[in-house]
Simulated scan of single mutants.
Amino acid sequence: MKKHWSELSTGRRCTVVVVGIAQLILQGVALRDIAKRTPAQVNGPKAGWVAASFINFFGPLAYFAMGRKKSD
C-alpha cells in the first residue's frame, strides 16, 4: 500500500531524506569524475555514462565499477 509523505513516521522520513542525499552525492561524484576524465580514460561513451548516472544508485556504482579504465 502506497503511503503519502504525511503518513510516514519521522524515522521513515529521515531514512528517505538520508538515502536521497546519499544518491545525490554519489551521482555528483560520478558526474564530476566523468567530466574530469578524457574519453580515452572512460570505457564507452562519456555521454552514455552521464545518462546512466541518473539511474538511482545503480548507474553511478556501475560507472565506478566498469566505466573507468584502470591506470597502469
Score class of each variant (00 low, 15 high):
G11H: 02
C14L: 01
H4V: 14
K70H: 03
A22D: 07
R13W: 00
V17H: 00
L8C: 04
D33V: 05
S9W: 04
A40T: 10
V18Q: 04
N56W: 13
N56G: 15
R37A: 08
P39H: 11
N56V: 15
G28Q: 12
V17D: 00
N43Q: 13
R12Q: 05
K46H: 09
T10F: 06
N56T: 15
S71H: 04
Q41R: 11
A22I: 13
A35V: 15
V17P: 00
F57G: 07
K2I: 08
G28H: 10
S9K: 09
Q27Y: 01
K2Q: 12
L61H: 00
R32I: 13
T15D: 08
D72H: 08
A62E: 07
Q23L: 13
L24Y: 08
I55C: 07
S6W: 04
M1V: 14
A30W: 01
V16R: 07
S6E: 14
G44S: 03
R12T: 03
K3I: 08
F54Y: 11
Q41K: 05
G11V: 11
R32E: 09
K70P: 01
T15H: 02
Q23H: 10
I55P: 01
L31W: 09
V29G: 01
A65I: 15
T15N: 01
V42H: 02
N43T: 15
I34D: 06
I21W: 03
E7Q: 14
K69N: 11
A40G: 12
I21T: 14
G11S: 10
D33R: 08
F64Q: 02
G20V: 10
V16H: 05
G20H: 08
V29K: 02
G20F: 10
Q23W: 09
F54K: 01
T38M: 14
K70D: 01
K70Y: 02
R13P: 03
V50R: 07
V29D: 03
D33Y: 06
V16F: 13
W5T: 06
V29Q: 01
V17Y: 03
K46T: 10
S9V: 10
D72F: 05
I21E: 06
V19R: 00
G28F: 13
F57N: 08
R32S: 14
A47L: 12
P45M: 14
M1L: 05
V19S: 07
V18H: 02
Q41N: 11
G59F: 11
T38I: 15
L31T: 07
R37C: 03
L61K: 02
L8Q: 08
K2H: 09
G28P: 07
H4M: 03
G11K: 12
Q23T: 13
L24M: 14
P45N: 11
D33H: 04
S71Y: 00
W5M: 10
K3C: 02
Q23Y: 11
G11D: 05
S53A: 15
W49F: 09
S71N: 02
L31K: 00
V50Q: 05
R68F: 05
